[in-house]
């Protein structure tokens, strides 16, 4: 019924319907190397500086998956906003493949805790935003269906966001990022608001997408198990201002089982670091 109604999108100038042209979609080894060098950052609250990040240094290898784990409000999300180029760091620098990050760029994409879809656009329209904004829609139109298929939303392409469940909305947000072939995907508690079962399903899906597409991933979470199931390396942060307290390599092969004894052992280790006896 929704599909039959003319939408806001109908007011746009008609786009030429070109066949999905030969499109460079290199598989694998497209991830970029991220290095965070001695970054400190503070918020201004009523004129007084509130330090949130304290001399953070870390690097993520091309195609790597690192999880930032820490208590809520410790400044993890701030680090992602800096890496996305939405804000400049007060001190230190962030570098992607040798290039300093100083503004937003579609090669580094942020997936928020809220899906933040545009309610006036269909699922397809939302996924198309990045290509449209850069004038690439005509060339890469085929990528949209591909991305929708990748997250299992082909049947919902013409639905509006309010008709979708929370999990489906977050899948749409993932497709909206993936369609741009990001080299660095910044995930800011992307599954934080989903119910437990949807969460598990999307964790597996994230692993699948990451292994298939080869982007570099930096995930912020406060769920120890989630970090262990997804990441190759877990960075544990302290309370505000965030400092790195520990870095833990997770060697278990993908796809990981949640009852893998290795993960169970690391889980209690990390909880100990965070001050919760496991």
């Amino acid at each position: 019924m929704v599909a039959a109604l003319p939408r806001w999108a109908a007011l746009r100038r008609p786009l030429r319907a070109r066949p999905p042209a030969a499109d460079p979609a290199p598989e694998g080894a497209r991830g970029a190397e991220l290095s965070v060098e001695d970054v400190s950052h503070a918020f201004q609250i009523n004129g007084a500086p509130l330090p949130v990040l304290d001399r953070i240094s870390l690097s993520v290898a091309p195609g790597g998956f690192v999880a930032l784990l820490g208590p809520s409000g410790c400044g993890k999300s701030t680090l992602l906003r800096l890496a996305a180029g939405l804000e400049p760091a007060d001190d230190g620098r962030l570098v992607l493949d040798g290039e300093r990050i100083d503004r937003p760029d579609p090669s580094r994409l942020l997936v928020f805790q809220d899906p933040t879809l545009y309610p006036w656009r269909t699922v397809r329209g939302n996924v198309a935003v990045g290509l449209e904004a850069r004038g690439l829609l005509a060339q890469r139109r085929g990528r949209i269906d591909e991305a929708l298929g990748l997250v299992g939303l082909s049947a919902f392409a013409e639905a509006h966001p309010h008709q979708l469940s929370g999990g489906m909305q977050q899948r749409t947000a993932l497709a909206r990022a993936l369609v741009n072939d990001p080299r660095l995907l910044l995930l800011d508690e992307p599954l934080g608001k989903l119910d437990a079962l949807t969460r598990l399903a999307l964790q597996d899906e994230l692993v699948r997408l990451w292994r298939r597409s080869g982007f570099t991933a930096l995930l912020v979470t406060h769920d120890v198990e989630e970090a262990l199931v997804l990441a190759e390396r877990v960075v544990v942060l302290s309370d505000r201002p965030a400092r790195i307290r520990a870095e833990i390599r997770v060697e278990a092969p993908y796809p990981r089982r949640r009852d893998d004894p290795e993960l169970v052992r690391l889980r209690s280790h990390i909880l100990n670091i965070l001050g919760h006896a496991a």
């Binding site: 579609p106 942020l110 935003v129």
Partner: peptide, 20 residues
């Protein structure tokens, strides 16, 4: 947040006004 999303996706100022 609508603007943050569009900006990271490479939107120009015109796009932010007219499409967001």
């Amino acid at each position: 947040a609508y603007f943050d999303v569009a900006r990271t996706l490479g939107a120009s100022g015109t796009f932010l006004v007219l499409r967001v």
